[in-house]
């Protein structure tokens, strides 16, 4: 009996471990090798003249341009400026959005008042607002930062509201039966319960904020990654255009990673559930 249990247990453990592990290794290898293969093909194609070098310079040329931009400090200078704008915009747009969203989820009358306004203005392409923002804030930081803030705001506010509304009513019932007062209910049920969607909203918001920020920099700024991209196009320095593009992509990736890190800290109870 014990013998049988042991073998059952052994095969039960061995199987899932052994099979996916081999699969996981192959998967990881493919994930690393495929971009390398693409770069290799690209390099060969560019040198052999199969693709137009004016639009698709060889990766080695891009790396050189990238290196130049780094060593002269140009790229870092503009990166810092964009980073600052995105960070500031995310705070200015995100913090009130989360607070308003949570409040809307908690209080019906507030939801009824604000939801139509948000729903009516949400479909408007945020980029269309930039001329108006330029008019209001001028060419200074305000127009760029507010652009990011608007991008973050909408996604953060709706998700925070949905976060509260998505909490199963039974949790509120539990709190009430234990004699929880209003603030207790908010503190112990509504806030932690809404946290997963609040962070999902911020994650999406930061992505949109970055898009709008870079766009605003292209249209009306004298610095930042968007400006750098635009001036690269205007001076036809394609290699530096690609290099800047790469840095912008890394910035996007890094900001999402940052929010994911925040999620792991603030929502520890979902960590393993979400990852497995």
């Amino acid at each position: 009996m014990a013998e049988q249990g042991a073998t059952l247990e052994r095969t039960g453990v061995q199987r899932p471990r052994w099979l996916p592990q081999a699969g996981a290794k192959t998967e990881a290898a493919v994930q690393v090798l495929s971009p390398i293969a693409l770069l290799l093909i690209w390099e060969i194609a560019a040198r052999a003249g199969w693709v137009d070098q004016r639009f698709f310079p060889a990766p080695s040329a891009i790396v050189r341009a990238f290196w130049d931009a780094i060593t002269t400090g140009v790229l870092l200078h503009h990166l810092k400026i964009t980073l600052w704008r995105v960070l500031l915009g995310t705070l200015i747009g995100g913090v009130p959005a989360v607070l308003i969203g949570l409040a809307m989820g908690l209080w019906r009358w507030l939801r009824l008042t604000l939801d139509p306004i948000i729903a009516a203005t949400y479909p408007l392409p945020k980029s269309a607002l930039f001329p108006l923002l330029l008019l209001i804030f001028g060419l200074g930081e305000g127009s760029k930062v507010s652009m990011v803030a608007i991008g973050v705001f909408y996604l953060a506010v709706t998700n925070a509201m949905e976060g509260v509304l998505a909490i199963s009513p039974v949790y509120f019932d539990v709190a009430k039966t234990f004699g929880a007062r209003r603030w207790d209910v908010i503190r112990t049920v509504a806030l932690p319960g809404a946290m997963p969607l609040v962070l999902a909203g911020l994650r999406l918001g930061v992505g949109t904020g970055l898009i709008l920020g870079v766009l605003a920099e292209m249209l009306g700024a004298r610095d930042g990654l968007g400006y750098l991209l635009w001036s690269a196009w205007q001076t036809f320095s394609v290699s530096s255009l690609w290099a800047t593009l790469f840095v912008t992509a890394v910035l996007g990736f890094a900001s999402v990673q940052l929010v994911d890190f925040l999620r792991r800290v603030l929502v520890p109870w979902q960590r393993t559930a979400g990852r497995r």
Partner: peptide, 30 residues
């Protein structure tokens, strides 16, 4: 305090609290 406590039908244990925090919940409110 309320003279009763309720055990619910569905999933009513707070997912955002550990076992210890869940069991201590009513005591903390009190």
């Amino acid at each position: 305090h309320p003279p009763f406590a309720m055990v619910f039908q569905e999933q009513s244990v707070f997912p955002w609290m550990t076992v210890r925090e869940n069991v201590a919940y009513g005591l903390r409110l009190r």
